[in-house]
Amino acid sequence: MTSWDKELPSGSREIPAASLGRLTIYLRALNGLGPDAASRVSSEELATAAGENPAMLRKDLSYLGSYGTRGVGYDVGQLTKRISDALGLNHDLRVVIVGAGNLGRALAGYSGFVSRGFEMVALFDVDPLVIDREVGWLRVSPVDQLEQVLESKRANMAILSVPPSAAQELCDRLVAAGITSILNFSPTILQVPQQVQVRKVDLATELQILAYHAQRVRDPEVSSESRTPRTG
């Protein structure tokens, strides 16, 4: 059977970024199996559900101390807990959103955060026409009260959805208030201390990458030409 008896030692090797990203996909696939699913899942079944390669899946799970036995599979409950523990999802994850524009309001109302263990605890903006309005289960607070609300709500993560001109100043305030994990939707590079983790989401860049791939599908000649070396 799958061995989970070897606990990760203190200070064990860090999980590579690519593997970390795939672990979140495996967890989503495990959660999607539903209550009526079998209690065990093979690496092939889980990889198929996650859209990944079985060999890659086994390598990624090895960072958790998982050494599955061929033909038996993984215990779904144990594997779910192990990945959740590795990702830090079994702690209180209390998130504030700074910026109550269209994107900020959409993020505040997204139910997928709650189902994955993230609690949205506050929403901020500078616009007097927006402050005190209710968005989902949150009431928009003024940015002037950022530090007080962060403390009272015991927030430990933040989402930035503000114009580039305001992003760095607000980031500095978040960091000074003790926030060390920031998801940045603002199209700018934030300067932060080494201990602060920032993940940047640039929707325009993602669309540009999709446009590139769409062009290759739409116009095979362009794709072929890009692969043909030119000689001078």
Score class of each variant (00 low, 15 high):
M1L: 12
K6N: 15
S10R: 15
A18N: 09
G21V: 09
L23V: 13
I25E: 11
Y26R: 07
R28H: 04
N31Y: 11
G34Q: 10
P35L: 08
P35G: 14
A37H: 12
R40Q: 11
S43G: 09
E44G: 07
E45A: 15
E45M: 12
A47L: 14
A50Y: 12
A50E: 13
E52F: 00
E52K: 13
M56L: 09
M56S: 15
Y63P: 01
Y63Q: 04
L64R: 03
L64H: 11
L64C: 06
G65K: 01
S66L: 08
V72S: 08
V72I: 12
V72Y: 07
D75R: 14
D75Y: 12
R82W: 00
I83D: 01
I83K: 00
D92R: 12
V96R: 02
V96C: 12
V96M: 03
I97Y: 05
I97R: 06
A100M: 11
G101P: 09
L103M: 04
G104L: 03
G104A: 04
R105Q: 15
A106I: 14
G109P: 01
G109D: 02
S111M: 09
F113H: 10
S115M: 12
R116M: 03
R116V: 00
G117S: 07
V121W: 01
A122M: 13
L123Q: 07
L123K: 07
D127W: 09
P128D: 09
V130Y: 02
V130F: 02
D132R: 11
R133F: 00
E134L: 05
E134Y: 00
E134I: 08
V135G: 07
G136D: 09
W137T: 13
R139L: 03
S141C: 07
P142C: 04
V143P: 03
D144P: 01
D144N: 09
E147L: 04
Q148R: 12
E151S: 10
K153C: 11
K153R: 10
A155C: 05
M157K: 03
I159Q: 05
I159E: 05
L160T: 01
L160D: 06
P164N: 04
A166H: 06
A167Y: 03
R173E: 10
V175L: 03
A176T: 12
A177H: 08
F185E: 03
F185P: 09
S186Y: 02
I189Y: 01
I189P: 00
V196D: 02
Q197P: 01
V198E: 01
R199H: 05
V201G: 02
V201D: 04
T205Q: 15
L207A: 14
Q215I: 06
Q215N: 13
R216E: 07
V222E: 02
V222W: 13
E225G: 10
R227E: 15
T228F: 07
P229L: 10
R230T: 14
T231I: 11
G232C: 06
G232V: 10
